[in-house]
Write a protein that binds this DNA or RNA. Structure first.
Lengths: 195, 195, 195, 195
DNA sequence: GATGAATGAGCTTTCATTCAT
DNA sequence: AATGAATGAAAGCTCATTCAT
């Protein structure tokens, strides 16, 4: 059970996430976040010691969220192909119902290197997410469904592809809904990864 | 032939590109750029009316550069598979010899939406690049090599994948050199796109 | 006998004194003091109504401490020259065993005028100390040992000299220990003050 | 000859000196200084990169000023006793006509250790002043007038004494003018320092 | 075209103090 | 007496942009 302080921290995280994803890290100010939450600026700092630290907590929060979703899929007793599709569905569902999460990942975390340099080295802050993708991949290989290629090449394909599609959607370039691409993309990815 | 003013504009673009890609859009100041170029801050504004306008000119410059490279490949009399590989090679070669170009694309243009909102709607500022990828794809379809799927799904796969790999390399996560992945990636992409 | 509240006030004074002397008045925050004492910020204000009032209570505490030490020396049945030496010894002993007291005097009280302006006019807050120096001086004059000069000139010499030496020691400029200067200084001061 | 920028730097130094000496380092803000000079806050930072750096430049300025005054006295062809008196006169004259200089020395430089820690180690920032006092002392010893004691003991006596008197004056405690103490003090110091 | 001093709004952060519990 | 979350004013500093020269 969460303490009151932890509940408030999470509330701040959720609100800050929305603003950062919408307006960017630098174009979102602490006063912006505070006023959204109807808190004073000073009180914000009782919960997060700096804007950077808040940004890092947010990416960890997202990573934990997505990681737990994939974990559930990994635990299902279905074929690798079905898992592949479910991950893509989950990713797009998240991109549609909580677009700020994917946007934050793509536009704040991946881009503002200088913010995350100290404290998120390697993949520390997106650990939980990467680990579950790794498990998906390795089990696919073990079960004979996926080719045993370099994990990062597979990871780059999978996540680069999905990220690219969500990005294109965000730019209003895609003529159709994300969901309408699920079959195409599943086909493309599975074709690329399978033996 | 370029006028003197146009030559100087290009020089500014090349230098600003280096700084933006290295340090980010917000962490790079106009005085930084001016001092790198040994010119005065005020004079910078004789060439670019604002920092945002400079940023937009830079992405157009990169788009033109990459577009021209793909154009040359498109004009070669080789198979679609060979073209695919050549594009990947060109992309990685650029990522290694002029990393600022790909970095700017991935980390400045794709991320700082607020900067490019006004003036780069849709894909206006990366037109030349996208058009050439489109030509590559349509010719591949016409020649019977590629499946006739939604262009953007194919585009997302191709560019998301390549961008993802360069990103992972930039984070020092890839155990091997980018070049060592060329065959894997060509295989994966061509497998995914071909009929 | 002290009430419980008075005992706690004194405990706060002693701890705040340490922090102020070490880090300066402005660089020491009320939360710093509270956490050192393992008490809440709010409760601190039940004992001292403001940071400034705390600072003033501290200088009174120090003045009382030093005054009582000199008082004992004044009451001894020894020559003025011996008293002079004993005062110097006491001052240096305090500077070594409780350096925060002398440091507070020199660096907080004497320097942050704006803090003590209201409530410590003249020498109100260091009364007990100055009075005892005055007694030392006047008895020395009465007994024929010291020249009957303006008290403040004598006071300035005595305390300016000692303060200057402790300051130099604090800056790590003195090549020897404070104690090693006692004879020199006693000689200099007594030579200057005696008839 | 000073450049325009150097002239303006000096003007800032003189004005900031007045404010710091009057109100203390922390109670004086950069906006305070800027508005006194009718400059914008931002422009202040074109001349001094930080408030701390400004404070350090000021103490160097004072040290150079006082050093040059003592240097002139050292170069005169007069007795050590006369030099002693002239130094005291000069010090008090400065304390009366430019009280901010002595005040800054006593209340800003000597007290706000944390500000001067980095860049003014040892006596770097008051070099020019200390060196001239050293020359006064060593020539006095060489000429047989002063006892060959530890320099710092003599320095502590001389400067502690003078500083103490100015401090007492500043507190409105001295019943007479500083000038009226010159003979007493000269007598006391010379008596203490001479063979 | 070229210079760089000047502007001023706005940012992150701090902290003495208050107050509901 | 005790807690510590909350307030809000104010600080130091930055930087895109302008403008007199």
């Amino acid at each position: 059970m969460l303490t009151k302080k932890e509940q408030k921290k999470e509330k701040i995280i959720r609100n800050a996430l929305l603003l950062f994803a919408k307006n960017g890290f630098y174009a979102t100010t602490i006063p912006d976040i505070a006023s959204t939450l109807k808190m004073s600026v000073g009180n914000m700092y009782n919960y997060f010691k700096s804007k950077d630290i808040l940004a890092k907590e947010i990416i960890k929060y997202i990573s934990a969220y997505l990681g737990s979703k994939i974990k559930k899929i990994n635990e299902e007793d279905i074929s690798t192909k079905e898992k592949t599709k479910k991950i893509i569905e989950m990713y797009f569902k998240t991109a549609m119902s909580k677009p700020e999460m994917i946007d934050y990942f793509l536009r704040i975390y991946l881009s503002n290197r200088e913010v995350f340099l100290d404290g998120c080295e390697g993949m520390i802050c997106v650990n939980e997410f990467v680990i579950e993708v790794m498990i998906y991949f390795e089990e696919g290989v073990k079960s004979g469904d996926l080719r045993d290629q370099d994990f990062f090449s597979a990871f780059g394909l999978f996540m680069g592809y999905l990220g690219g599609m969500v990005f294109l959607k965000g730019e209003n370039i895609l003529p159709k809904e994300l969901n309408d691409y699920i079959d195409d993309i599943t086909y493309n990815i599975y074709k690329a990864l399978s033996v």
